Amino acid sequence: MVKVIGLGDNVVDKYEHIRTMYPGGNALNFAAYAKKIGINSAFLGAFGSDAEADHVQNTIHELGLDISKCRHFNGENGCARVTLEDGDRVFLGSNEGGVLRENGLNLTQDDLEYIKTFDLLHAGLYGYTEPELDKIRALSIPISFDFSDDFTIEEVERIAPKVDFSFFSCSHLKTDEMLNLVMKAHKLGSEIVVVTMGEKGALLYDGTKFYSQEPELVEAVDTMGAGDSLITAFLINYISKIKENELDRENIIKESLNEGAIFSAKTCLVEGSFGYGKKY
Rank of each mutant, 00 (worst) to 15 (best):
L7E: 01
H72E: 06
I252R: 00
V182F: 05
K200W: 10
G6M: 00
F234A: 00
V12G: 02
R19P: 11
D222M: 08
Y114M: 06
F91K: 01
G8I: 05
D50Y: 03
L173N: 02
R158F: 12
V221Y: 09
P142W: 09
Y128P: 12
F210H: 14
E52Q: 14
R81I: 11
E132F: 08
F168S: 00
I115L: 12
F210Y: 14
N58V: 11
I236E: 07
A265Q: 06
Y211V: 07
H186P: 08
K14I: 15
M183F: 15
S148E: 10
R19S: 12
A31P: 07
L100R: 02
G104Y: 07
V218S: 12
I262Q: 08
T59Y: 06
T223S: 09
V11P: 09
E191G: 11
T152S: 12
V156R: 04
D149V: 05
S94V: 02
T208Y: 15
S41P: 07
L247S: 15
E154W: 10
K187E: 15
Y205A: 09
I141E: 04
G260M: 00
D66N: 00
R137N: 11
I262C: 10
D146L: 00
L217K: 15
Y238F: 11
S41T: 04
G189D: 07
K278N: 13
D86G: 09
G45M: 01
P215M: 03
E155I: 06
G75Y: 03
E271S: 15
G207I: 02
V218E: 12
A261Y: 02
S229A: 13
G75R: 06
A202V: 03
D119G: 10
G272W: 07
Q109D: 15
H122F: 07
N237H: 14
Y211R: 00
A202Q: 07
I5K: 06
M21F: 12
S264H: 08
I5V: 01
D110Y: 12
A32M: 13
I136G: 06
G78I: 00
M1L: 00
G64M: 06
H186G: 04
L173M: 09
P215N: 05
I252P: 04
F145R: 02
A261G: 03
G38M: 02
I236H: 05
E259Y: 08
N10M: 07
T196I: 09
D222V: 05
E246L: 13
L28N: 07
P23L: 02
Y15F: 12
H55N: 09
I67T: 07
L139S: 08
Y238S: 11
V82H: 01
S229E: 09
L100H: 07
D66Y: 00
